[in-house]
Each structure stands twice: as C-alpha cells, then as structure tokens.
Design a protein around this nucleic acid. Structure first.
Lengths: 102, 102
DNA sequence: CGTTTGTGTTTATTATTATTGACATAAGGA
DNA sequence: TCCTTATGTCAATAATAATAAACACAAACG
C-alpha cells in the first residue's frame, strides 16, 4: 500500500525540480519534442511532462529512460553517491570494510 | 493505468544497479542500518532494499529521500543532465534559445 | 496575421507499487 | 562457538501511478 503520497523536505523538492528543469533544457537543446522523447523512452507524454517538473512520484526507471532517450544522458546517474567525500572521511575514522552495519 | 512494468535497455538497468550499489556503499560507510535510513527517509525498509538494488519501479522521490538521509547526498541529483556537453554543441550549431521545440 | 504544432491540464480507469509482518539467512562481536 | 541483529525474501493488501484522450493555450514561422 503506497503511502498517501511521498513527503519530501522543501529542499529536496527543489533539487528534484531543478533536475527536471535540467532534463527539459537538455531536450530543448536537442530540439526534440516531448512527443518524441516519450515514444523513444516508451512512456506517455504526460509522464515526460511530470519528469520535466521533477515530480517525486514518478518511477526512477522513467527518468532513466528519458535520460537515455536524450543521447545516453542516463550515464549521469552514475554520478549519484559516487564521489562521496564525507563518506570516505567517516570511513577513515573507523576503517572497516563491512558488508553490513554493526 | 501504469504500464505492465517499465522496460529498460540492459545498459540502463546496469546503470541503475550500479547507482543503487553506490547508495548502499554510502550507507555502509556511514554505518547506518537500513532500518534507520528507512525511518529517516520516511519510507519502509523494503523500499530501501529495492533502492539499493537499483529497482527502476521505485519513485524518484524515495531515492531522493534516502539520499538526503545519507547526509544530504540528494544534492548529487543536480549533477544529472547538468554538464551537457553534447547538448551545448548541438545548440551551437543552431543558436536558438527556444522555449520549445520547433 | 494566420496557421501550425508543441506544451500543459484535466479526468477516468486500471495496473502497479509501497507497505506491513513474518520468516530465513548470515555477518560479526563477545 | 554462540548469539545478536542486519539483511533479504515473500505474500497480501491498499493506495497510488501511468495511461489515454480531449482540450486550451501559446510559441514560432511563413
């Protein structure tokens, strides 16, 4: 039973909005209509619109598909949680390469 | 009526998987159990598990909430579609700052 | 200015998701 | 080793998401 709706901090919502805007700009630069992106991504145009608004409730797979339709921009997803500086510092304080938390 | 299920290219699926792994590693480095992340993110532990596996069907908002629970790692989402080199090159060829495609 | 068409809303419908809880497994400390 | 507990899986259910279609609006072009 999905939660009534996903509740996010305003800060996080803004981040998603901005990401959506960036996706939209990437599309505009390529001069591809939402129609086409939707078709290439295998989703509906309505969902593309939601994505460009940064809707939190849209599946990450839809985001990925749209990004891929924009000339393999989906590879950008690999940047998420990649360069984890804080994480590495924390790890240095307690050098355990654990498979799970303790 | 949601599509039967999101169908992605194997390449895109791999990207999501890897992203999930990176998120998991970020959590392990911080030594936070899935339980706690779920609580902080306001979602269920089952969903956290799905996210760490890179499940395409999970809402992007859940991903964002988990990232935020990991010391504001949600800012990494701003890297997506940001440094759009190809897009800018394409734009250079046809310098129009359009609000929509034509 | 007129026309084309890309964009954004809305609504109803149905398939799918996120949840809960219980259980099995295994990691790692004592 | 033993024991705690983090992790993963599974099933059933409730609530949402993604869709299609029609509409209005506005941007860009001739």
């Amino acid at each position: 039973m999905p939660k009534k709706t996903i509740t996010l901090l305003p800060e996080t919502e803004r981040i998603l909005s901005q990401m959506g805007e960036q996706i939209k700009n990437a599309r505009l630069r390529r001069n591809i209509p939402q129609d086409l992106v939707a078709e290439r991504a295998g989703i509906s145009r309505a969902t593309v619109i939601s994505i460009e608004k940064g809707s939190p409730s849209v599946a990450v797979g839809c985001y990925a598909a749209v990004l891929h339709a924009l000339n393999k921009l989906d590879k950008d997803l690999l940047l998420v949680a990649k360069d984890d500086e804080l994480g590495r510092k924390l790890q240095d304080l307690d050098l355990t390469v654990a498979k799970r938390v303790r």
